[in-house]
Design a protein around this nucleic acid. Structure first.
Length: 150
DNA sequence: GCCAACGTTGGC
DNA sequence: GCCAACGTTGGC
């Protein structure tokens, strides 16, 4: 089983939104590296749900991967913000996975806190300078250490 | 294949 | 709202 971190802006889609719907197709990823990570996901993988672009950025919950990667339907929808004219049904460019709610953390493990533990965490995409990836891998050791902060 | 211009992300 | 950093695009 692998571990991941997925970012979401709480104004758009928060952990409470995920709790409400239960399962959400993670549409709208339009970055090749992030897409490739989703292609590596398997059902049952654990996901840190991370709130970005907000007052207190950080890990707010845990989700699980609920489907293999499959084509993101929004890439075909002309009216969608995520429409991609280079995508065809035969050769879609963008995939998504379904993400299922598992639980909210008892408190937010803030980005600030995670940074303070950089030495224990080793190389971590989230705190790498200039990182903008919205989907990234987390090692088992990083998962354990971050969760221990809860 | 280089690289400037542009758009986006995301912390602050 | 600012801006650093980065990915993508497109001209050459």
């Amino acid at each position: 089983m692998k571990h991941w971190l997925m970012k979401s802006e709480p104004d758009t889609f928060s952990i409470d939104d995920l709790a409400k719907v239960g399962t959400e197709p993670w549409s709208g990823v339009r970055n090749f590296q992030a897409r490739n990570f989703m292609r590596q996901m398997a059902v049952g993988d654990k996901v840190f749900f991370y709130h970005s672009s907000c007052a207190v950025p950080g890990v707010v919950g845990i989700a699980t991967v609920a489907s293999e990667a499959h084509p993101d339907p929004t890439q075909f929808q002309r009216k969608s913000d995520y429409f991609d004219e280079k995508s065809t049904r035969e050769q879609p460019r963008w995939d998504l996975v379904d993400v299922a709610f598992e639980r909210k953390l008892r408190r937010t493990i803030t980005l600030d806190e995670i940074r303070q533990h950089d030495d224990d965490l080793g190389d971590f995409a989230l705190t790498r300078r200039g990182n903008r990836l919205s989907v990234m891998p987390v090692t088992a050791a990083q998962w354990k250490r971050i969760l221990a902060l809860e």
